[in-house]
Amino acid sequence: MNELIPHLTVFLLVLVRVSAFFVTVPFFSYKTIPPQVKITLALVLAWMMYYTIDVEPLVFNDEYILLVMKEALVGLLLGLMGYIIMSAIQIAGSFIDFQMGFAIANIIDPQTGAQSPLIGQFFNMLALLFLLAIDGHHMILNGIYYSYQFLPMDQFPSFASESLPKFIMTTFTAVFAIAFQMAAPVVATLFLVDLALGITAKTVPQLNIFVVGFPIKIGVSFLVMFTMMAVMIQVIQKLITIMIYGIRDLMAILGGG
């Protein structure tokens, strides 16, 4: 019976890291998942991970409070790294919506609770389904499980590492590069459509180009997205891979690697 009841101080530290990770990481942090499910999953996962961690029982003192704060910070940072990388989908959707004219019709994303572009919401759902199809949610759980190999429970993260600023800049560069890759086919095509509409407006002044151009740009945009859907899936797959490796590299850097 004693083996089934973990030491409360160690179990609490594991629970804090897992819970903080679920607050920010993609998929598990979405508001469409009931809070009861998140809490239950965090408790069960922390209870299972407790028996894989070889740590002596800790004493509740001032240092233990710092360890709790450290575990919460580590979990938030790891989840936030995944969220920042996956936000490239929203950025690409914003680029496309701005060119299509959908920027005036942003909607509330039920998953995050924030305003989201229409095309970005579509790409986000597509990425979520693709993430589930390739068992990406299992890889995310593997990330928080193996985080104790890079960041042990009794070790504080190394924020003074010279590699951390370089890693952050490289990650943001990759996010905007992938967002531009996703939006480039549609944005470039709409630029040519705008150019053609401008020439048409000069040659046929009687034509109300604002009324005619809006449905033309929407139709062309959907046609291009339908044609480039296979490429979009490949870019989303690349984005998910970068997210997994980005979380791992962040753990290694914070652990002093």
Rank of each mutant, 00 (worst) to 15 (best):
M86C: 04
Q121G: 14
V37Q: 05
A46G: 12
L76T: 14
A88P: 07
I84D: 01
I107H: 01
P57I: 14
D54N: 09
S116G: 01
L129H: 11
I91A: 10
H138Q: 02
Q90R: 12
L132T: 13
L78G: 03
N61V: 09
W47Q: 09
A42G: 08
Q155K: 11
A114S: 13
I89P: 05
Q111C: 03
Y148S: 03
N142C: 01
D154P: 02
A105E: 08
N106K: 14
I91F: 01
L67P: 04
L45N: 03
A133E: 04
S147C: 05
A105R: 13
M153E: 05
N142V: 13
L126D: 08
L126Y: 03
G120C: 07
N142D: 12
P117W: 15
L43N: 04
F150W: 05
F102E: 11
F150D: 00
G82R: 08
W47D: 00
G143H: 11
T112G: 08
I140L: 12
A105Q: 08
P152N: 08
I84N: 13
Q115W: 14
F150E: 01
Q36A: 13
S147A: 04
I85C: 06
L66P: 02
I134W: 08
L77K: 09
A103N: 05
Y50P: 01
Q99F: 12
S116H: 14
L129Q: 14
G136F: 09
D135A: 11
F130G: 07
L129I: 10
Q115I: 02
L66T: 05
Y51V: 05
L76D: 06
I108V: 15
S116M: 10
P34Q: 12
F98M: 11
Y146I: 06
P34I: 04
S94T: 15
A42F: 10
L77W: 09
P57F: 13
G82L: 12
Q121T: 13
G75M: 07
Q155A: 03
L67W: 07
G93H: 12
D97R: 14
Y146A: 05
I85T: 12
I53F: 04
V68S: 07
K70C: 01
I104K: 04
M139Y: 15
L126N: 11
E71I: 03
K38L: 08
W47S: 09
A114K: 15
L129D: 06
I53S: 03
A103R: 05
S147W: 11
L77F: 09
G75I: 00
V74P: 03
I89S: 10
T112E: 08
Q155L: 03
F150I: 03
L128D: 00
A42Y: 13
P57R: 15
Q149V: 04
G101I: 13
L129V: 06
V44A: 12
A92G: 06
Y50D: 13
P35V: 13
G93D: 05
F122V: 12
I39F: 14
S87D: 10
Y146W: 07
S116I: 07
G79P: 09
T32F: 04
I84E: 09
P152M: 08
V59S: 06
I84C: 03
P152D: 04
I144S: 06
G120N: 11
L43T: 14
D54L: 04
M81H: 03
Q111S: 12
Q121F: 15
D54V: 06
P110N: 06
G93T: 13
Q90E: 14
